[in-house]
């Protein structure tokens, strides 16, 4: 943890190609992203949803557990947005804003994983109404684009606009995921635990 993955990237073009050739730096993350998204979607479609899975003691239903976990993830996603703006100097921020960005992102991601596992295991990829279809599509997209973001962070000399765009996609996807699931749950069943 000595290198700051959020260090400002240099501007295009890079005169000499690094150890990895130019196109591969973009192609590999893009291909991995596509593979992740398609694999999740295919699993969700092929696997016969069990209808239910683990529950957490103290919660009335798996839906409530997921909604709260998703809300935690969404909260950290907002921290992500703010800390990213600090890292890029668009907002005044402390010197540890890069660390904040890294760790809030990790927490958000790791909290989102159990939710996704439950979605895929218990509910699957569904398309019976537009809310559900969008949620299914974006759920797969989210983990794909997140993988791409993580892999892109390892490259140097990216065009300066690339990480903000990809990061913005991650944030937007998570926001819509939250709106189409947790918010819907709270509105339908009430803010319950």
């Amino acid at each position: 943890m000595t290198v700051d993955p959020n260090a400002a990237t240099q501007s295009w073009p890079s005169p000499e190609p690094g150890r990895r050739s130019g196109p591969a730096r973009y192609l590999i993350p893009a291909l991995v992203a596509a593979a992740v998204a398609v694999a999740l979607g295919a699993y969700g479609k092929v696997h016969d949803p069990t209808g239910t899975a683990f529950n957490l003691a103290g919660f009335s239903s798996t839906g409530a557990v997921k909604s709260w976990l998703a809300t935690v993830a969404f909260f950290f996603a907002i921290v992500q947005l703010v800390s990213a703006l600090m890292v890029y100097g668009k907002l005044p921020g402390p010197s540890w804003s890069a660390t904040l960005h890294r760790w809030s992102g990790r927490v958000a991601f790791l909290v989102a994983v159990p939710v996704a596992v439950h979605c895929l295991y218990a509910l699957g990829f569904q398309s019976y109404e537009s809310r559900v279809l969008w949620h299914s599509l974006l759920g797969c997209f989210f983990f794909g684009v997140f993988s791409a973001k993580m892999l892109l962070l390892r490259s140097e000399r990216l065009p300066g606009w690339l990480l903000p765009i990809v990061g913005g996609l991650v944030f937007t996807a998570l926001t819509i995921l939250w709106l189409t699931s947790a918010l819907w749950f709270f509105r339908t069943f009430g803010v319950t635990t």
Partner: peptide
Amino acid sequence: RSGPLLTLLAGLLVGLFMLSLNATTGE
């Protein structure tokens, strides 16, 4: 810059762990 890779790996492991929990303990 292994941090992002480790994050992905950790997510993968958590996912696999949850999946195995689901598969073994039922619901």
